[in-house]
Amino acid sequence: MDEWGVAMTLLLQEILNGIVVGSIYSLVALGLTLVYGVMEIPNFAHGHLYMLGAYIAFFLLTSAHFSYWPALLGAVVVLVVVGLLVERLVFNPLRKAPQVNAMIASVGVMLFLEALAQAIWGPNYLQMPTPYGNVLHIGALSVTQQQLLVVVAAIVMMVLLNLFLKRTMIGAAIEAVAQHREGALLVGIPSGRIAMLTFAIASGLAALAAVLVTPINLLFPAMGTMVIMKAFVIIVLGGMGSIPGAILGGYILALAESIGGAYISTNYQDLIAFAVLVLILSIRPAGLFARRA
C-alpha cells in the first residue's frame, strides 16, 4: 500500500470508531434531550443511570449467568423502574420549585448512584463479557462484532423511537408536552404521567446504550460522569429538547473527537467537546438552535 492508502485507511478507521462512539453518544443524548424537552430539567444523573444499567447487566451476566440478550433486556427493565422511581420521588416534588433546585437534586441522585455502585461492586475497573468479541476485517479496516452490534442496535432504536413518537398517540402526547406544557394540559394530556413515561424511556435508552458499549470499554463507578458531560455538549449543540439534534450532534461530536484525537492529540481528545461547547455558547448564548418558545 502506498503512503496515501495508509493515510486513507487510518482516516476511515477513525471515522468507523467515531460512528461506533457516536451511536452511544446519540442514545444517551436522546434520553437527556427527551427529559429536558418534557420536564425542562437538565438531569445530571442521566449518565449515572447509564452506569447503573451497565452494572445491572454485569451482575446478570456474571452472577446470575444470564446470556447477553436477556441480561441486556433485564438491565433495561430494571432501569425503567429506577427511572420511574427517580421521577416520582425526586423530580415530581420539585416541579414548582426554582429551576436550580431540580438541578441540585439531580446532582444528589448522581452522587448517590455512584456511591451505590462503588459500595456494591467496588471501585475497580471491571470487564463485561460478550459473545461478540471476534474481529472482522473489511479490506484493511478492522472492526469487532460488538462494535457493529452497537451501530446497528443504536440505529434500530432510533428508528423505533421515532416511529413511537410520530405514529402513536402516546408518542404524540409526549411531543405535545414538550412543545407546550400548559397547552397539552388544556387538551387533557396528563403531563405528570407523560413525565414518568419520558423518564422511564430515557433511563431504558441509557441502560441499552451502556450494555451495548461496555464490553468495548470498561466498567467503573464514575463511567457516567464524562458521558453525561458530553451528552450535555451534544444537546446544546443540537438544541436542547431536539431529537434529530441529539442524534446528529452525537455523531458529529464523536467524529470530531476521533479524527481530532488521531490528528491533533489523543491527550487532549476529551477537551474537544468542551471547547466546542464554550465556543458555541460564546457565539450563540441560547444554543445553536434556540428552541421555539
Binding site: 437538565p42 436550580v100 446544546v236 436542547m240 461547547l277 464554550v278 455558547l281 460564546s282
Partner: peptide
C-alpha cells in the same frame, strides 16, 4: 461570555469551563 447565557445554559457552560 458565560453570563450572556441564562438558566440551564449557564450551569452547563460553567460546568464545561470547570471541566476544561
Amino acid at each position: 461570555v458565560s453570563l450572556r447565557t441564562r438558566g440551564h445554559y449557564f450551569a452547563i457552560f460553567t460546568m464545561a469551563v470547570g471541566v476544561i
